[in-house]
Simulated scan of single mutants.
Amino acid sequence: MKKKEEERKKQIMKAAFNAVSSLGYDNVTLQDIANHANVSKGVVHYYFTSKQNILLELLESITNKIYSYEIKEIAKYQTAIEKLQAYINAVFVSPQENKKFYRVYLDFLAQANGNEEYKKINLKFYENCWGIGREIIELGKTEGVFSQDIDSLTNAKMIRAIIDGSLIQWLTCDLEEQHKFYKDTCFHSLLKLLK
């Protein structure tokens, strides 16, 4: 029974992600989420008390999933430059996935101003990202490929800022074929910053 409930909850979370991606945070309703999940609104209510409750769990779930994926990809490599490239590759997954994720994520960020829970989840996500950046920078300093003079935390924050800025700019250009350009440029800009 427990496994079936977990599966149903995952189904509803995936439906919520798809609903927010296509309709936008403000427009999505519990009925929309139920429709995307092919269940009744009552089923959605059984697992989540409110739209806010689902979306809070959704934000936490997707940011945790992304962080776990990034860590797993980086762990496959040994050197700082390889790890940095793996990090960029893990973030710039594909035009379709990046478009879907950032549509949802930017909607959440717009809500974060008035929502302490969203702020907390987002800060935790960024702290995780900064941890990845710091680890790569420290390794690069040890290997002698990154400047000894740079502050690891400051530059870890800049790594994520450049990554997100690149993806947001790509998204607003709305040119799918520019995805690789932004990915490559992001990587080379980060190398310049760190060397």
Rank of each mutant, 00 (worst) to 15 (best):
Y47C: 06
Y46C: 04
E135A: 15
T29S: 13
N115K: 07
L55S: 01
F92M: 01
K183L: 12
F92K: 05
E6D: 12
I81E: 12
K180D: 12
N35D: 13
L106F: 08
Q148C: 07
E60V: 02
I74K: 02
E176S: 14
C186T: 07
I121F: 05
H45I: 06
T185M: 07
K124Y: 08
I159A: 04
I137Q: 04
I54Y: 01
Y105G: 03
L106C: 04
L194A: 06
A110M: 11
A75Y: 04
A110P: 03
D184T: 15
D149I: 09
Q52W: 11
I168C: 03
L30W: 09
K180S: 11
S94D: 08
S147W: 06
K195T: 15
A16F: 00
Y25I: 02
S61D: 10
V20Q: 04
G131F: 01
T185R: 00
I163N: 05
G133I: 01
C129F: 05
G42A: 15
G131I: 01
G131H: 00
R103S: 15
K141S: 03
L175G: 11
L123C: 08
G144H: 02
Y87M: 09
K72T: 10
K10Y: 08
Q148V: 11
C173Y: 11
N18Y: 12
I71H: 04
R8V: 15
I74H: 01
L194M: 06
S50I: 02
K157R: 15
A110D: 09
K157C: 11
N89W: 06
K99S: 14
T63D: 01
I88L: 09
Q52F: 09
G114Y: 09
E82G: 02
L30F: 07
R134C: 15
C186Q: 06
L194Q: 04
F181G: 08
W170G: 06
A16Q: 07
I62W: 01
K10M: 13
E177P: 04
V28H: 03
E73Y: 07
K65S: 11
V39A: 00
Y105P: 01
N64H: 08
K195E: 12
E117S: 13
E117V: 11
E70K: 15
Q96M: 10
G140M: 00
L56D: 09
A16Y: 01
K119M: 12
V28F: 08
Y105F: 14
I150Q: 03
D26F: 10
T142N: 12
E5V: 10
Q178P: 05
Y126E: 14
V20M: 05
L55T: 05
D184Y: 10
K141G: 03
Y69D: 15
Q111A: 12
V39H: 06
I54C: 10
G144S: 08
T29A: 07
L193T: 00
K141V: 05
Q78A: 10
M1A: 14
E138K: 15
K9D: 00
K119V: 02
